[in-house]
Design a protein around this nucleic acid. Sequence first.
DNA 1: ATACCTGCAAATGTTTTGCGACTAA
DNA 2: TTAGTCGCAAAACATTTGCAGGTAT
Lengths: 147, 147
Amino acid sequence: MKLAKTIFRQYLKKNGKLYSKQREQILDIFLKTEQHPTINDLYDLVKKKYPQIGLATVYRTMEVISDAGLARKVDFEGGIKCYEHEYKHQHHDHLVCLKCGRIIEVMSPGIEKLQERLAKKHKFSAVRHRMEIFGFCRSCNRKKTQV
Amino acid sequence: MKLAKTIFRQYLKKNGKLYSKQREQILDIFLKTEQHPTINDLYDLVKKKYPQIGLATVYRTMEVISDAGLARKVDFEGGIKCYEHEYKHQHHDHLVCLKCGRIIEVMSPGIEKLQERLAKKHKFSAVRHRMEIFGFCRSCNRKKTQV
DNA sequence: ATACCTGCAAATGTTTTGCGACTAA
DNA sequence: TTAGTCGCAAAACATTTGCAGGTAT
């Protein structure tokens, strides 16, 4: 946590940007959220604590935070856009529950290896990838089969 | 091609929807496009041939075509939304070129199998998934390394 | 005849931008 | 002092919707 803030400050200084109360507040809220919040989720959370803050500032700040390497914007199906933590989160993929919306972060070295092989087969030089599996999570699944 | 139109007509009839000139025109354009067109791509193409057509009609018709099982809406990164062919296109994943935007459809049974195993490990019942690998395609790659 | 469809324009929802006031360094 | 930021409101986009007139069956 501390370290993330230090990185943020260093990024600001290095890029001729200023530290501000609002930026720190938004970063705090984001770091505390372990889910995948949308801009509006963040706006609501921030607003609750710091009512004077503007929506545009949240948009602008999340962009700065992303540029600093602490967050990453993710587009899910259906046009849902949210931010996930990037700092100290190594690469992973997602299981997305169609019922409750829960997003589970997963990782499979086997899949990663096959992806590389697949790219190579097409003479495609892979930079990054994303993978999502949609379905029903453990608890929604249980409820479903009980009924 | 012929068959896709038949399916479309059957779908319309079965669902109490009407056949119309515009719907056939838009379907024609879509079937001829082997890329992954956005609504605007389609609108431009349609407009060129049938200038009287409205943008709202393209939106509405692509929804009908999707419901008929002939197209599928795909959200790529950066909020880019486009339609791909669904009829006679079995499940596949995508290689997306970051330079020229080309989208290559690929399929790896090995990856599919590992995805199932991954879901099972998390007691997650998978319904569908999507996977995209971003990088540079064969020809962009060649240009890049030549320079 | 009667739903349904179309094109247009207006409405909606989301994200970006311009600007005068404010703030960090 | 001087850039960079902020909050607000307006602008810019993308998509959806309401409606009056037109069309397929």
